[in-house]
């Protein structure tokens, strides 16, 4: 699937939902819980289960990135699965927090 900015995806095996913040070029298979994610508007595929190797969970409001690909997604609904591309778990990225309101 081509991961365009703003594209919303959901996990096939848990409650996780993400939005693509920074796209990666070409076709990228983003997985959650070890299974390919699907468009948020699509039906959830049946018969898939959460892989124990990818069950670290996602946290609401956290950004996950694959620096090699340039891909970055924002978790907008948390779930039990963890995010990966080709089995490689995505790293957590911190916001460069502004020290005050503005």
């Amino acid at each position: 699937m081509e991961l365009k900015p703003g594209l919303r995806l959901k996990s096939a095996v848990c409650d996780t939902e993400v939005v693509v913040v920074r796209p990666a070029p070409g076709d990228v298979a983003l997985e959650c819980g070890g299974q390919p994610m699907v468009a948020a508007t699509a039906a959830k595929p049946e018969g898939l289960s959460l892989s124990p190797d990818h069950s670290g969970g996602t946290q609401m409001g956290k950004r996950y990135a694959d620096d090699a690909l340039g891909l970055e997604v924002l978790c907008v609904k948390p779930g039990a699965g963890s995010l990966s591309v080709g089995g490689e778990v995505l790293g957590l990225k911190d916001a460069k927090k502004l020290p005050a309101s503005d």
Binding site: G6, G61, A95, L98
Partner: peptide
Amino acid sequence: HRNLTSYVISTVEFL
């Protein structure tokens, strides 16, 4: 929307 949300999520930690 993408300019505004980009600013927010890159500068503010959620909740």
